[in-house]
Design a protein around this nucleic acid. Structure first.
Length: 948
RNA sequence: GGGCGCUUAGCUCAGUUGGAAGAGCGUCUGGUUUGCAACCAGAAGGCCGGGGGUUCAAAUCCCCCAGCGUCCA
């Protein structure tokens, strides 16, 4: 069964009738008798360009957005909706997406699943969103954006509990009244298209709201979830009704602005100052003024209209696309040459895209994101590099930080969520430095990669272009530019190459997706009820009593040595989680004691992995390995304190990227854009220890998620997105507040002391702090002392003099190594000159056959000494017993010696005596073997061979 | 999270089939010059990222680790 028609009174009351679209076959509602299409088809052009459909909004840019947003939110506030503040664009509360891609994303997954109450109901919001899927189309299509505000009114109905605020009828009524009354849109321009929606396991009826050929909004009535026995089939999947029935709407703020402004592109409606400024900086006017007869406004308007109705398939190459446009434009009476077309649209695409990208960048960095080479940080870097590249293509000489300053002041009113203005500009200046560095390195890479390529080559081999792009960050057209600058004057890019590369990437991504992770099955303990955690109630108690619920075989789930998995009704044993390792200890029942080797959580059940079984129904007495637990708590609380210190000292972008706590040490990964110096670590260490002495008590509270979000915001979720509705919060004065399920000290002073041992780089933008606290700090200090003691004993100096002594010994060692080399060659010289026993004269050639002490390195030095002098033609055969026997033969090059003898042949004929082989050049051969005792035989064989 | 590339002198980088560790810049010494710059001659400076393996022999081939870079999810 598919969905029934959406037949609402609001349609009939306003004179709308239901029709089927001639082009898309979708059903739609219209009050225009002549209309045959739904409005969103290749035959429906934008009607608002040059003729605004929304009245009463004369502003442009930020002022227009502000007015439009206010009109929308005000309309819904007047109708009992609560206005809520937008969420960050960085989706910290989710672990499946990096960026907020829609207003409903604010409420997924826990509100939409019903586990968590919405912050208000019904509510209205204007949510900044970022979507990077169409990033290539931004600036070119006239309407695509990477960042936009999705205005929305959301309703969460729960009919089973009698909670029904409103559904389709009222929703469409609100929408229609707002469009026609608040925004003064002519009802005949509006069509409502029935087009069911599904995604992410949910589905429902949906209405697309099309005005003047532009989709202004979508109203989704999400009331179904995916289920194999469901009665409704949509796009191949089956769905059934769910208890929570959600109205998910999305109104494109920027599109409303565009429809109100009627500008040729959406960018001129929302970023007019920036567009004008960039045009001025890039000298765009002089380009356009080359052809006074060309009506630029007309060209752009027609371009936008065309873009609106043309479905540009990904991978269509540039030249072909231009021809299509020229043809279509000609049909509309705009005569333009290919040259005019590209010299106007190419810079314009950049001018339009830059403010969009800057907006996304400021929003992301404003939320505290740190650029990186992985995950969300990569998205920011990609945008920054796109801006820099487009800026360079426009030949605009303005630093990235200055572009951002302009954007921040003009389009954001100076507002950033978290990051400071200075922080933002520092980050962007660093990004620009990295970009310049990448280009510089790229030039070098091109020089070497193209070394074998003729200077008059017309094309660069595909493999080189792929490598440059994937491994060195140089897009194909940049490679061409750089190659031309480097002297390959006539290289060009084959048409269709970019499409091929995109295809190749798509193919690689597909293959990578296939190798999905296959996690092992979890231990089956779902027959037990949830274990009550005692460790939150009594932090300092090492003993407890509980009832045995059961004991199953650990199979291969537990650690080495564990045979059974014991489940109790309550436990003091903390299961591994939040980076904190599981507790250990013992369980005793009726005089039977088993050792707990690890504790894990499986669902809501806490499992004790033991070295033996427990049976019967008698109560169990548990005893923690308290020393271990105390140490883990020391490290865990210390990690929070150090994290707080880092945030206070380094800036609001410091976020926990991971942590791990063992008995030996604590590890905290933080996001930061610089490598940390020892001075940074010392400052954090000082502040952390100060907290230990200043803060008497930690505050542990439990809040429901809705209140936690409202009271503390999303910085709370440093440890990742929590799963349930109930959030445990650890507050260390005003120093650090975060959600954490670990075990923590009531009094920070219990830790004793905190040391930050060192920092290391995990990935770009993430710094790892190695921390020791409590007894581990003491143990660390002792082991460091021991290292110094042992090392200074070796040198026989006092510990304080160790660095000086080590430096002196190292220097002397190097000097003496040099000296030994010199002496070795001196020995050879002495033995081979002045009638030494090793040297013989054979018909004008000095022949040296001798055994020496030394390794390959010293042998080669000696051989060099013997055979480099062309005035003394020499054949030298050196042997050493080093490492199973080594043989080396050298002949002075370009002399009678090299004419007469062949080093390789000679070596091969004698190396069998030391059971080895060898090879080399005719004038230099070396080999070795595994039978050093045969060396004298080998040298004798050489003498025989040479007739000595 | 996955793919690819890189790591060699203080710096920027070459290094071919596994067989003697290289260039340019910089530094130092000497020459030239009123002085500077420039030039000439010479010298110093290397655990070829770390650890295993193959081999008579590894900067080079294979495996593991680390760091850096980059593309993509």
């Amino acid at each position: 069964m598919s969905l029934p028609p959406i037949d609402l009174a609001v349609f009939h009351n306003n004179g709308y009738v239901r029709k089927q679209c001639r082009v898309t076959s979708l059903w739609f509602w219209t009050c225009d008798e002549a209309r045959e299409t739904c409005g969103d088809t290749p035959e429906d052009e934008y009607t608002f360009i040059g003729a605004p459909l929304i009245e009463g909004f004369e502003q442009r840019g930020k002022a227009l957005k502000d007015a439009m947003r206010e009109a929308f939110l005000g309309f819904f506030e007047d109708r009992e909706h609560t206005r809520i503040d937008p969420y960050p664009v960085l989706a910290r509360w989710r672990d499946d997406i990096h960026l907020t891609i829609a207003s409903i994303a604010d409420f997924q997954p826990h509100v939409t699943s019903g586990a968590v109450q919405p912050p208000a109901n019904p509510l209205a919001v204007s949510q900044p969103c970022i979507r990077l899927t169409d990033v290539d189309a931004v600036g070119r299509s006239g309407r695509h954006l990477t960042t936009f505000e999705m205005m929305a009114h959301h309703v969460f109905n729960r009919p089973e509990d009698g909670l029904e605020i409103y559904w389709m009828e009222q929703c469409v009524e609100h929408c229609h009244r707002m469009l026609t009354e608040t925004f003064g849109i002519d009802a005949s321009e509006i069509t409502y298209v029935e087009n069911p929606w599904c995604g992410g396991g949910n589905a429902g009826a949906a209405v697309e709201v099309i005005v003047g050929g532009l989709e202004l909004a979508t109203l989704v009535f999400m009331d179904m979830e995916e289920h194999p026995d469901g009665g409704v089939e949509l796009k191949g999947d089956r769905y059934r009704t769910m208890p929570l029935q959600i109205i998910d709407t999305g109104y494109g703020l920027e599109r409303f602005c565009w429809a109100a402004a009627g500008t040729p592109t959406i960018y001129e409606a929302i970023y007019p100052e920036t567009v004008a400024w960039l045009k001025e900086c890039s000298g765009f006017e002089s380009v356009a003024n080359q052809w006074p007869s060309l009506d630029l406004e007309r060209l752009l308007s027609e371009m936008s209209r065309l873009n609106g109705i043309m479905n540009i398939e990904a991978g269509v190459d540039g030249e072909k696309l231009v021809n299509i446009f020229l043809e279509r434009l000609a049909q509309r009476g705009v005569e333009v040459s290919a040259e005019q077309f590209s010299s106007i649209t190419e810079p314009l695409a950049n001018i339009y895209a830059i403010p969009d990208h800057l907006h996304a960048l400021c929003n992301m960095l404003g939320d505290g994101l740190v650029p990186s080479n992985a995950k969300a940080g990569y998205l920011a870097r990609m945008l920054a590099r796109r801006v820099l590249r487009m800026r360079d293509e426009l030949a605009i000489d303005v630093p990235l930080a200055e572009l951002a300053t302009h954007h921040l002041d003009v389009n954001l009113g100076g507002h950033l969520n978290k990051q400071t203005r200075d922080g933002l500009l520092t980050i962007l200046a660093l990004e620009e430095e990295r970009y310049v560095e990448m280009l510089r390195k790229g030039t070098n890479v091109i020089q070497t990669q193209l070394k074998s390529l003729a200077k008059d080559a017309a094309e660069i081999p595909d493999e080189h272009l792929f490598t440059m792009n994937d491994s060195h960050g140089l897009a194909p057209d940049m490679v061409i530019t750089l190659a031309r600058n480097a002297g390959w004057d006539s290289v060009g890019l084959r048409t269709g190459f970019s499409a091929e590369m995109a295809e190749r990437h798509a193919r690689m991504a597909k293959e990578a997706a296939k190798t999905s992770s296959n996690q092992g099955d979890a231990l089956a303990v779902d027959m037990f009820s949830a274990t009550h955690p005692l460790f939150y109630d009594t932090v300092y108690s090492p003993k407890f009593e509980a009832n045995l619920l059961g004991c199953v075989s650990a199979a291969d789930h537990g650690p080495d040595g564990s045979t059974h998995a014991v489940v109790l009704d309550a436990t003091l044993f903390y299961p591994e989680g939040g980076g904190q390792e599981g507790d250990r200890g013992t369980l005793r029942q009726n005089g039977v004691e088993v050792v707990v080797l690890d504790t894990q959580k499986v669902g809501e059940v806490i499992v004790h992995f033991t070295d033996g079984p427990l049976e019967g129904t008698e109560s169990v007495e548990g005893q923690l390995d308290w020393k271990r637990r105390k140490q883990l708590m020391d490290h865990h609380t210390a990690v929070h304190i150090v994290g707080g210190a880092a945030r206070r000292l380094l800036g609001p972008h410091i976020f926990q990227a991971g942590s791990h706590l063992t008995v030996e040490s604590g590890r905290l990964d933080i996001t930061h854009y610089h490598r940390l110096t020892r001075a940074d670590l010392d400052a954090m260490e000082d502040m952390a220890n100060h907290v230990l002495s200043e803060v008497r008590q930690t505050e542990k509270t439990e809040l429901n998620r809705r209140d936690a979000d409202i009271v503390h915001g999303f910085d709370l979720y440093q440890g990742g997105a929590p799963k349930g509705d109930s959030i445990r919060i650890l507050k260390i004065a005003d120093h650090d507040i975060q959600a954490c399920g670990g075990t923590h000290h009531d009094e920070p002073g219990q830790i004793g002391s905190i040391r930050i041992v060192r920092s290391s780089a995990v990935q770009d933008g993430v710094e790892r702090l190695h921390i020791v606290a409590g007894d581990a700090a003491l143990a660390y200090a002792r082991s460091q002392d021991e290292l110094v003691r042992q090392s200074s004993d070796v040198f026989g100096v006092h510990g304080d003099d160790l660095p000086k002594a080590a430096a002196r010994f190292f220097k002397e060692w190097k000097e003496q190594r040099k000296l030994i080399e010199q002496l070795e060659s001196e020995i050879v010289r002495l033995r081979t000159t002045g009638g030494g026993d090793a040297s013989t004269e054979v018909e004008g050639v000095r022949v040296v056959v001798m055994e020496i002490e030394g390794d390959l390195k010293s042998m080669t030095t000696m051989l060099k000494e013997l055979t480099l002098d062309a005035s003394n033609p020499t054949l030298a055969v050196l042997g050493s017993k080093d490492g199973g026997g080594k043989l080396m033969i050298g002949i002075t090059e370009n002399t009678i010696a090299s004419e007469r003898y062949n080093a390789v042949d000679l070596l091969r004929s004698i190396s069998s005596h030391i059971r080895g082989g060898g090879g080399g050049r005719p004038t230099f051969a070396q080999g070795g073997g595994s039978h050093a005792e045969g060396l004298s035989d080998a040298l004798q064989a050489a003498r025989d061979e040479l007739g000595l």
